[in-house]
């Protein structure tokens, strides 16, 4: 992760965690879309933050470069490790799934993160990425907010297809995708197939 992003999250851990309380419907819609593709088994979240996704989605292990965030994730029952996705401290073929949620947009080189995620997956293991879709209303909104938002000024957003292309390069076979936040952020929304227009997209693939 870019050093600036690490410092930003470490400093603003309370504000970050508070976002999930203030945006319950958005958070809940995102969780529903992710739940569609999460398999059984032993899971890792890369960029686990405060554990807001790992805990409800059943990822037992979490890694993040921010110590303050990890303290919260640990309280949520996640086994936490201080580290970065570019250099994972896990043995090859360890996990049934690796989850990466709104993290690729904050790293300098997403390909490195995906290559490492692929390495630690078991054969037939699942890679699951959740991201803000640049080619959506929400994506455009965030793009416009970048100037003013302390969090998002360091972010680079991708389209669903660009993420699928990154999977191919990392040797992960694309399987399916879901999207949510297609219209309003005010209401909780059921996930739909595809990754073309939702504000939040979930891309799943397997290592084989």
């Amino acid at each position: 992760m870019a050093i600036n992003s690490v410092n930003l999250f470490d400093k603003n851990w309370e504000r970050y965690d508070d976002w999930f309380e203030k945006n319950k419907n958005t958070y809940s819609s995102e969780l529903k879309a992710l739940k569609k593709v999460i398999p059984e088994g032993f899971g890792l979240e890369v960029g686990v933050g405060s554990g807001r996704f790992a805990q409800p989605l059943g990822a037992k292990i979490g890694i993040d470069p921010s110590r303050n965030m990890l303290k919260l994730a640990k309280k949520r029952g996640i086994k936490v490790i201080l580290g970065e996705g570019e250099n994972l401290p896990f043995k090859d073929f360890t996990f049934d799934f690796v989850l990466i949620v709104v993290t690729l947009c904050f790293v300098d080189n997403p390909e490195n993160i995906l290559n490492e995620a692929s390495r630690v997956l078991k054969m037939e293991g699942r890679l699951i990425v959740g991201e803000i879709n640049r080619e959506s209303q929400l994506g455009q909104l965030y793009e416009a907010k970048r100037e003013k938002s302390e969090f998002y000024k360091l972010a680079a957003f991708y389209s669903g297809n660009e993420i699928i292309e990154m999977f191919n390069k990392a040797g992960i076979r694309y399987v399916e995708s879901y999207q949510t936040l297609t219209e309003s952020l005010e209401m909780e929304e059921e996930p739909k197939k595809g990754a073309d227009r939702g504000g939040f997209v979930v891309i799943a693939g397997v290592k084989d």
Partner: peptide, 13 residues
Amino acid sequence: DGIPNMLPPELRE
């Protein structure tokens, strides 16, 4: 504090 620091040496605080 119960948390292993596995950051690459050059990134450690």
